[in-house]
Structures are given as C-alpha cells and as structure tokens.
C-alpha cells in the first residue's frame, strides 16, 4: 500500500481530489475555495499600515490561513513519508530544451540549478525569486484570485470573469515561457 502511494499519482486522481475541495469547503462551512487571499490576510494581520484594502477583520477569514497551514503540513508529510526515490519523468522535448539551457537536474520537483539558497542573491535569483514572487502576489490580488479561486472555483461555478482571468493567466505564462524565460535561463 505504502509503495503504491509513493509512486507519482496520475492526473485524474489529483484532479478529482482538488475538484472535491470545492464542495468540501462549501459543506464544511460555506467557504469559497481560494488560496491567494491568504496572502492578503497575512498582510492585514501583520502590516495593515492603515491601507484601506487591509483594514478589515481578517480573523473572520482565519479559516483560509488554517487551510494553507494544512497545505504546508501535508506537503511536508508527503515529502518525508511518501516520496518517490526516482527522478521526475519530464516530457522529452521539455527536457531537451531545458538541457540546452543548462537545467539538467530532474532529481527533485524543482531544479537545483535555479531554486537553491546560493542563487538567491544572484541576478538569476533576483528574477526567479524576487520578480517572480512579486508577480504572483501582485497579479493574483489584482486579478482577484489565482488558479484555485478563478480557474477551479470560478469555472466550476461557470463564472465568465473567471474564464477571462484563467485565459489571461495562460497568456501571461506562455509569453514568459516562450519569449522571456529563454533569456532569464541564461543568466
């Protein structure tokens, strides 16, 4: 059983469990699925600085912080007790392309050539950690949601604004991947 769970799980298992989060949160307490709001609650809790956008009772949304704490803990459990010793299977064409850019280490979920502490203070690190992180936080709040709030919750409820947001996510990602990342990877 444990050996079975240690293999990578197929997409339909992950997809179904993530989809089930929508009704489960609704039934547990009428909560609408969304993760990026947790970043807003953190701002409201730690440094509201009299900014109207952060002047609200974040404790009423504390469930969201309890949820993401669980996500962090679950990932920790999976990485420690259910980890798969084999290297990641990456699509051959992606692998060839990344190898040309010097990214060859597929032993972990993230490439050690980029996401390591020693890169944080380099120019590469500036883009991959600082600019990337900033875009994720700024963009999701500006869009009013992320992959969970818009792509999954919003589309599940057939909301067209969420479809527009999801398409914008994809366009942004494709532009970065095809036109900007090739340069960033050479830094």
């Amino acid at each position: 059983m444990l050996e079975f769970l240690k293999q990578p799980w197929p997409w339909y298992v992950g997809g179904a469990l993530i989809g089930l989060t929508v009704p489960i949160l609704l039934i547990l307490g009428n909560k609408t699925f969304g993760i990026s709001s947790s970043l807003r609650h953190l701002c409201a809790a730690c440094l509201p600085a009299k900014i109207p956008y952060f002047m609200y009772d974040w404790k009423k949304e504390a469930w969201n912080l309890f949820f993401v704490a669980g996500v962090l803990g679950g990932a920790m459990l999976a990485a420690n007790f259910l980890s798969d010793p084999n290297p990641l299977v990456v699509a051959e064409s992606t692998k060839t392309y990344l190898a040309e850019k010097g990214i060859t280490d597929t032993s972990a979920l993230l490439p050690a050539e980029i996401f390591a502490w020693e890169n944080v203070l380099s120019l590469r690190g500036f883009f991959f950690f600082v600019v990337g992180g900033f875009c994720v936080g700024f963009g999701t709040r500006y869009a009013g949601g992320c992959t969970s709030g818009h792509a999954i919750m919003g589309l599940s409820n057939l909301q067209w604004p969420s479809l527009i947001a999801t398409m914008s996510f994809m366009v942004g990602g494709v532009v970065m991947t095809w036109f900007i990342l090739p340069y960033l990877l050479t830094l």
Partner: peptide
C-alpha cells in the same frame, strides 16, 4: 492582474 500573475507563474 491575470497577465502579471501568468508571468510570475511561469
């Protein structure tokens, strides 16, 4: 915002 997040996501 969606476009900016997309850039960061990638």
């Amino acid at each position: 915002g969606g476009l900016i997040f997309g850039l960061g996501w990638a």
